[in-house]
Amino acid sequence: MELKQSQDIPIPVAQVWSALNDEQILAQAIPGCQELTKISDTELTATVKLKVGPVSATFVGEVTLSELNPPHSYVISGSGKGGVAGGATGSARVDLEAIDNGNATRLTYDVDASVTGKIAQLGSRLIESTAKKLATKFFTDFIAILSPESEQS
């Protein structure tokens, strides 16, 4: 599964970068996030509850920030075990590019995801759509949280 998209945010790169490293904002953006605890600047533990149709699973695992190149890019990856459902791993390479004379940011993300266990064995038809949906939701929510319009509303 691969997904690469970019979106423009009307705030400067530095602010976007700091939000990308803010666990409270990440916790709001990660779909189904029940708990996100910071262990260090680059390591967090997470509990994420996901529901896809009749299937629901709670994943317990880690969120790691790596390949940090402030304030331009990093890789955010998450890996969790969902008990009997199996495991899920997802990572996104995020690139920030200053646009509009530095007043805005172009955020590009490149997502890779894989699953193990019953999710893979029984639900393969839904893996790609679900991964895309979750990745899109994460970045859409992240951008919405940052965008001035959402602050106004």
Binding site: S114, V115, T116, A120, Q121, L122, S124, R125
Partner: peptide
Amino acid sequence: AHYNEDGQLLTASYMD
């Protein structure tokens, strides 16, 4: 029998 590159068997039920 469809194994993906991670070695996951994706055809493990009659759905697939």
